[in-house]
Simulated scan of single mutants.
Amino acid sequence: MTSIVSAIIVLGILIFVHELGHFIFAKLFGVGVEKFSLGFGPKLIGKKIGETEYLLSAFPLGGYVKMVGEGGEGEIPEEEKARSFAEKSPLRRIGIVVAGPGFNLIFAWFLFIVIFMLGVPSATTKVGEVVKDKPAARAGMVAGDVVTAVNGKKVARWEEMAAEISAAKGQALDIEIRRGAVTKTFRIVPETRTGKNLLGENVTSPVIGVVAAGETVIDRYPPIEAFSRGSSQTWTVIELTALSLVKIVERAIPLDTIGGPIMIAKMAGQQAEAGGVSFLAFMALLSVNLGVLNLLPIPILDGGHLIFYLWELVFRKPVSMRAREIAQQVGLALLIGLMVLAFYNDIARYLVGNG
């Protein structure tokens, strides 16, 4: 039950943020908004305020903003043409379309800043295991040692230590450690290890053969540093998400890694139980994914509409209705195929398998 409630909260917030982007920019550019719906399908509840009917609909896996004249279907009353989406310039339509994914990315950025202010867990440099017959073991390091400097540069977090080892590019390292009340320095030449990164690519890296003890501290940052770190983290996640999509197309990342609603619900429940910061981080990651995915040039998604309006902007004429209809059908087929794959993976992972 926790997983279902958590998933509803996460998806509800992210869908609201996305549609709010479309809504605000539609209003900003003088476009009338007839409906603002969280969810698709039959209306569960609704209330009309001004010209807009605000709805909660039956199927929660999405939402929509229905604007006056959207899609250019049917005749628009003369008095409504000035407030019609179809009558606005291509640039304004592009702004309205991009605003949805853009708000998701901005929301993720805001969440990451808040996360760094609230505090993120970081592993200390305490060594939990020294791998037998590896460079650190041969030099004399033992479990319980705390690394305090690498090549004269002070380190207090495992990530900092790893970065310094990597920066040396396999050259000999002076590793300073604290063992109880004693300080020692070891001269260690790293060895090269080949493994796979998050994108399934083979990468080589220098290692000395130590494993973190798992001791963590909470690092909290003042607003200015949190802003910087949050911005950097947002961009890193955007890049990683885009590269992951490319690798899926190239089949470097297996298709069975794609997850659907069951996976989201399970992960949302796990992150909610792990605590507020973990839950916010999961929401930020999902918000980036939603923003990037919606910008893909697939008809029926925001990115597909963006292509139509860019065409109109460049060639000074809209894409023909027939071409749009065919493109929408192809896009719908692709989207349904992706949803079927995600559901299949969820069923195989959690209902049939041992997930």
Rank of each mutant, 00 (worst) to 15 (best):
M161R: 01
K317M: 05
L55D: 00
Q329M: 14
R251S: 08
A226R: 03
G180F: 09
I177M: 05
H18Y: 10
E201S: 09
V146A: 10
L199D: 07
G74D: 10
F343S: 06
T52N: 12
K317D: 03
G12M: 10
K27V: 02
I336T: 09
A348G: 01
T183C: 00
V10C: 06
I188H: 02
V97A: 06
G71Q: 11
V288R: 01
E312I: 08
E73L: 11
F282W: 09
F282C: 03
V319L: 07
N294I: 00
A281T: 11
I165K: 01
F186Q: 09
D145E: 10
W311P: 01
V147W: 01
P190E: 05
I8W: 12
P299I: 03
E239R: 15
R83F: 13
L11K: 03
K153L: 03
S228N: 10
L240V: 04
I248E: 05
E239F: 04
D302K: 07
G50D: 10
I177P: 00
G230C: 09
L295F: 08
N294K: 04
V210T: 07
L240C: 02
I8T: 13
I13H: 11
V114H: 05
Y64F: 15
E79D: 14
G200N: 11
N151F: 02
H22K: 08
V68Y: 04
I9N: 05
M339L: 13
Q233C: 02
I300E: 02
Y309Q: 10
R93M: 06
L351Y: 12
Q233W: 05
F343N: 12
A268M: 08
V237P: 02
F25H: 00
R179Q: 09
K184F: 12
K134F: 14
G260H: 05
T125N: 11
T2C: 00
K266N: 15
S287G: 05
A162R: 03
E51A: 14
K81V: 12
R251P: 00
V17G: 02
E34A: 09
G12R: 08
V237Q: 12
A281I: 02
G128S: 09
G21S: 08
L38G: 04
A123C: 00
R322M: 07
M283V: 03
D346K: 07
I13F: 11
